[in-house]
Design a binder for these strands. Structure first.
Lengths: 341, 341
DNA sequence: TCAAAATATGGGAACGTTCCCCAAAAATGG
DNA sequence: CCATTTTTGGGGAACGTTCCCATATTTTGA
């Protein structure tokens, strides 16, 4: 039982005016006498009037809301992106409907439909690692609702995308390992379904090639990002007759988990094996040894995605420019590759 | 320029039926012939009909949306709570509007008003560390919109609250330090504006008293949770003529920052000083030494808060029960207090 | 067979706004 | 002072639903 909320009709009745006049005063329309306007504004304040956005959006066909769909909130990665996205949306006076789906494809689809029913003006999205069918995204485009991808993008769909220079960053990271004297560098890769996994892996391979190091398939393992499996893979690597002396991990959580396992096995980092992660997770500077990693401008990624989206909203779909923004990363060298970095 | 979205009128026209019948079929009302219903459902599917929730909520005065207001997303604390809250909301087919305000009071107020304008059916909230005026929360209650507090609650407002046994947990944590032989235990406390800070501090004090240890005011520092200041305080502690041999920190980020500083100062942990945190942050098991901390059931806190909120929605405000749920915590002993724990 | 009951459909008000169009009032100007 | 313009305010449709009431159709049963 909600109690009654003040409407413009309540205000109109009280002041013996029509709802049209009240509406005009409240929306700042010029054609209303100063005196009337003040009276309306004051009464509205007094009655704690809050415009009902449901009816506004019903009539304007705009909700001033954008949706943000991310695959998970467990690591700090996407939360940081959300911070930037929210900040940017606020600037344009937009609100934000956020959903995370625990890397579950079906929940992602459900969330997307929910946002559609809520008539968001646009969405920014980073896909689940298991998303291979994109109908739920295409549905937005068919309705002319703008979509911007970030980080985990989709090649199949024409839409603006914000990502980082995964290939270059991986290349640089692996080259850094090589420069510290490592010759057998393993790669714990992400699922091939994700473009970022493939790009980072290519960067890894090409760095090895540039330095005339063999690319050993046995040293590349693609996994599903389920951290509990890291232990198995690391043990497998270290049990080899000729174990790797370097490790490039798809992301920081993986790398940090690997550090633990390697230490348990009694190996020294970075002497026995140097480790590099990706994303500069909040925790990466706290671990021991502190983790060398690729810093990704997360908040900026969120801001950029929202900016692109804002450009599309209110623009005719025919005029949408399908920009691909590639953000720069920075290799942060810490103790997992260089003792006393 | 959004393209047209299918409405029940489109479907009605196509099938030469009235919108009433279409509405009934779509909402599952029994009084529709099977054959008609099937035709409507099929066409709706084909035309990609998505019910416009704006108009539904306009008429039902329900939005099936709840608001979640948290103070920050930088640490993983609140993200974890949000995961649980979202999961529970989904069960009742509710969506969530999330906002984080970077510990900024003004943004918190703005977000609250935004949610009001969006006519959320209820909110769960954890306050900013600087929130001392609660008008923006009371505004919800005046309108009969249910509010549930979690973690950072407000004593001044009558509302259900979900928290953890901060006092007991702090008591246990400090007692654990004492049992490991520590006698001069410092406390890096949170701002006194937060009830959790006061409760944890009281737990700390009473644990000392129980074991007949002096409560030294110089060993208690309240700070504003701005991590960059931890270094100063820790140095101050360690520079004392009689430095502490134990540290109880208000939360894990503080404790982890402290670990870094202590190590830089060349002190051994836990031999020279044992450290305990609070919240079992995602990173706390990765740090070196791994951090002894109080595990807080974060997702459960979110779930519980939403459950309480759901009980209130659809209940007459007069019948609201002002439950205070206190969740249990668990002390997780790691290497920052016990070598080789 | 025919009334009563059950089932199926349509019509239209309502939700709280915005906005167009029109009318009344006030201001302007010759 | 009156006609014209400008300012100010009102009336009502529209947005996409739901839901009540009324009507049409079918089924039931004695």
């Amino acid at each position: 039982m909600k109690s009654h909320q003040t409407t413009i009709i309540d205000i109109a009745r009280e002041l013996k005016l029509s709802k049209s006049t009240v509406s005009r005063a409240l929306t700042g329309h010029p054609n209303v006498k100063q005196q009337t306007r003040v009276a309306i504004l004051e009464l509205a304040e007094k009655m704690e009037y809050q415009r009902n956005l449901m009816s506004v959006s019903l009539i304007t066909n705009k909700t001033k809301t954008i949706g943000i769909i991310v695959p998970e909130f467990v690591t700090s990665f996407f939360s940081q992106v959300v911070i930037g996205a929210q900040e940017e949306a606020r600037k344009s006076d937009y609100n934000v409907l956020i959903s995370q789906c625990d890397e579950d494809y079906n929940i992602e689809v459900g969330n997307a439909q929910l946002m559609m029913r809520n008539r968001v003006d646009g969405i920014i999205i980073s896909l689940t690692k298991e998303t291979k069918n994109f109908d739920h995204i295409k549905a937005f485009q068919r309705r002319g609702i703008p979509v911007v991808f970030f980080n985990r993008v989709c090649d199949e769909i024409m839409a603006p995308k914000v990502m980082v220079n995964d290939y270059d960053a991986a290349f640089t990271a692996v080259e850094h390992l090589i420069k510290t004297g490592k010759r057998r560098i393993a790669h714990l890769a992400g699922p091939p379904s994700l473009a970022i996994s493939r790009k980072r892996q290519n960067g890894y391979i090409d760095a090895l090639k540039k330095h005339h190091l063999p690319v050993d398939e046995d040293l590349i393992i693609s996994y599903d990002l389920n951290l509990s499996k890291v232990k198995i893979y690391i043990k497998h690597f270290m049990d080899m007759d000729n174990p790797p002396d370097g490790l490039f991990a798809i992301n920081d959580p993986t790398a940090m988990e690997a550090l633990q396992v390697i230490k348990q096995l009694g190996k020294r980092i970075p002497e026995d094996i140097g480790v590099v992660g990706f994303s500069n997770d909040y925790a990466s500077r706290f671990v021991e040894p502190s983790l060398t990693t690729v810093a990704v401008p997360l908040a900026e990624m969120g801001r950029t995605a929202v900016k692109l989206l804002m450009d599309m909203i209110d623009t005719d779909p025919a005029d949408w420019k399908l920009l691909i923004k590639v953000l720069d990363t920075e290799l942060i060298i810490r103790n997992s590759t260089v003792r006393d970095a």
